[in-house]
Amino acid sequence: MGAGHHHQLYLPGGSVVHRLPPQCKLIAVFAFAVVVVATPRERFWAFAAYAVLLGVVAALARVPATYIVRRMVIEVPFVLFAFLIPVIGLGERVTVLGLSLSVPGLWAAWNILAKATLGVAASILLAATTEPRVILIGAQRLRLPSLLVQIAMFMLRYMDVIMDEMRRMRVARESRGFEARNFRHIPVIARSAGALFIRSYERGERVHLAMLSRGYSGQMPIIHDMSASVPQWGTALALPAVALAVLGLGL
């Protein structure tokens, strides 16, 4: 169904990582990503240590390595770009296997690859151990504007419904012998997109009516409250704290 990146990443489980409150995990992953991005690219061993840290988290969460690796395809376009940098980069050049490559370009490529890979892996771990709706509760706890949280909530709820509608329209097109092959077929796709928009918009209006019918007056009633204890914060923040310590060791 559709492109790979539409698949939900959540892997149900009951591990320590799964059970941590979402707001703790969000902050932990974000802080970890910031530490990774701020690490000087020459510090190879620091990146190795970060990878080990993520490996430990994955093991604790019982997320198989193959699962993470398979989900990393999302990164491919930028990996390709990263491989280009040494070729078109500036500065001193070295010859590797007959190719003239830029030294700063090689560094930059390594820098982007290492940091992006660690970032993607950390995000995958977060998404694999936390249900989307729970992540939203965490985001709300972290004072993300509630309107934004609600919009994201509705988007997640209706994503599959709309993708299904799109799929049905594609099946309808293809069963009448249509296949998008070249530029001339764009109008057909655009008409489908237009129809999809109208359906989405009208569904939005009906959902609003359904909400009104059950007493909605602009505020989401508070149904959940997930508070986090100090030990839970401690457990979650261990990840960025250790990463920061690794970074600090080299200063």
Partner: peptide, 26 residues
């Protein structure tokens, strides 16, 4: 109590529990 024709219009919350709770919570 209005039950709409398309249940997808009516069930807008992330879980069944939240959805059933929506009305009384309001």
């Amino acid at each position: 109590g209005l039950v709409f024709q398309d249940p997808d219009d009516q069930l807008f919350m992330p879980t069944v529990r939240d959805d059933v709770a929506f009305g009384p919570a309001n």
